[in-house]
Simulated scan of single mutants.
Amino acid sequence: MKKLLYILSFLFSFGLFAQNDALFEQANTLYNEGKYGEAIDKYKTILDTKNHSVELYFNLGNAHYKLNNIAPSIYYYEKALQLAPNDEDIKNNLAFAQNMTIDAIDVVPEAGLSKILNNAANTMTFDVWAKVSIGFVFCFVILFLVYYFAYSSLRKRLAFLGSLASLTIVCITLLFAFHKFNLDKKNKPAIVFAKEILVKTAPNNRSEESFRLHEGTKVQILDTVDDWKKIRLQDGKTGWVSSEDIKAL
């Protein structure tokens, strides 16, 4: 019975993959024909099946950008960038979309060791850092075995130095992996989807207005109280907005 369920599950997954692949090609054709709205509908149909990919998010961003949909284009470029943080095409297109936003927010620059660690950790995702660590663990084990069983003093010396280097790299990559994990855990970005929102000093409509934001602006979610989100901007300003006005990444 279990085998039958596994087979049925496999066939369903394979059929769904084939269907999504066909939908993706149809959406790309619509995009190339300039039918951006119809292309978006096709891409979203794939998203509804819980299928996520860099290409899917990137193409959704491109289609929304063509329609001058500021917030959705930035949102999907950011989603693509989460999966491929070093992709230059995504970064360039995201920069073009961000140029359409109204809010000019100064970024508080990082400095010192924190900046170096963050920049290094963000070069790869947590999963990639973990895989690199595992790879060098295997290298360490193999080189240590070579050192242990080698008869030649030269081979022993080289194997020992190689295993020592592998172990050092394992420690460094693990450090970056856990640092990246902590960064991702603290990182709760969102995009403003409303045309204009009033940022409040407290999580209620009776509180005073602190400042205003417009669609496409990226914020960090700090806290949630009922239907309100506490946000922080890149320049350090904080305030409360309605949960309906932003969309978490």
Rank of each mutant, 00 (worst) to 15 (best):
K156T: 00
K44C: 09
D87W: 12
L175C: 10
Q234I: 00
K200Q: 04
F160Q: 04
D223V: 04
F12N: 05
N119R: 08
K42Y: 14
N51K: 10
G34M: 13
T201A: 12
S9E: 06
R157M: 12
K131A: 13
K3T: 08
L198K: 12
N93G: 06
K131W: 13
G15K: 03
I70R: 01
F181C: 00
N119M: 13
Y65N: 12
I197L: 06
N20M: 14
N92Y: 15
T168W: 10
K247V: 11
L5V: 12
V107H: 10
Y65M: 09
I197N: 01
L60H: 05
R206G: 14
S53R: 07
T125G: 09
G34I: 09
E209N: 13
E38M: 13
R157V: 04
E78K: 09
N28W: 11
R232F: 02
Y151C: 04
F144R: 14
Y151E: 14
K229N: 10
V107A: 08
T201P: 03
K200H: 02
M124R: 15
T123Q: 10
L23R: 02
T173R: 06
E88C: 04
S73L: 04
N20T: 09
V219Y: 07
I197E: 01
K200D: 02
S207Q: 11
N92M: 12
A63M: 14
A165S: 10
F126H: 05
F126N: 01
E110Q: 14
D227W: 07
E55C: 05
Q98L: 07
V241F: 02
F160L: 05
Q220R: 10
A111G: 06
N69D: 07
D21E: 15
V219I: 06
N182F: 11
T49L: 11
T168D: 01
V132C: 01
I90A: 00
A177M: 09
T201D: 11
